[in-house]
Amino acid sequence: MIKFEHVGLRYGVGPEVLSDIDFTLEPGSFHFLTGPSGAGKTSLMSLMYLGRKPTRGLVTMFGRSINKMERPQLSAIRQRIGVVFQEFRLLPHLSAFDNVALPLRILGRPEKEIRSNVTELLEWVGLGDHKMMLPPTMSGGQQQRTAIARAVIARPKLLLADEPTGNLDDEIGFRLMTLFEQLNRMGTTIVIATHSQTIMDQFGHPRLVLEHGGLRVEEPKNWIRRKIEGVF
């Protein structure tokens, strides 16, 4: 699904924010991306959603190298990726409904299908009564839920969420995590950047840990324990 080989990224003439990143994510996997603030989680995400090109190294997405890809092919790949941005990035003049509908409209889906799907999902994330609300009038949590709904509405093959539960109370945060789990069971590959220890412990998925510009993969403790228990 995703393969990074010796990937490095620097902003302008600054130091390398990411250096020698090497990892492979299998289709259908679920990973947490963690690390201290400023470690480069958002930067790594932006490489994965094709928001910028690496300064060095090879990035392969959906089995194809993005370094040699033409614009139309890049658009096609982006359409298969759902992103929850750390700062949401909702279109401020569009209602919650129209924001969530955007990926379907980009895909050219019929308006009737859009209406029913978007309404259903908005109700599911608890925004059924705020369909016509504009982002600037929403609370942080409402914006985050709108952003999550927009990221998953088109059933992406890959979902990238950058601290998607940061503004949510535990209950709604847990509810949205189960939404991601459901999507994952339906085949979506998921990467969630977080530094919430509680969430990572609650859902035992492998972790990509960013530190000092490098990346290492950690199997979760309870995951290992479960494996050991399975063996004996």
């Binding site: 959603y49 658009s75 096609a76 790949i77 982006r78 359409q79 992103v83 279109l91 990926p103 980009i106």
Partner: peptide
């Protein structure tokens, strides 16, 4: 910012 967002969401040119 909005144009970039549409672009990132896979909107064609």
């Amino acid at each position: 910012a909005d144009v970039e967002l549409l672009h990132l969401m896979g909107a064609s040119d």
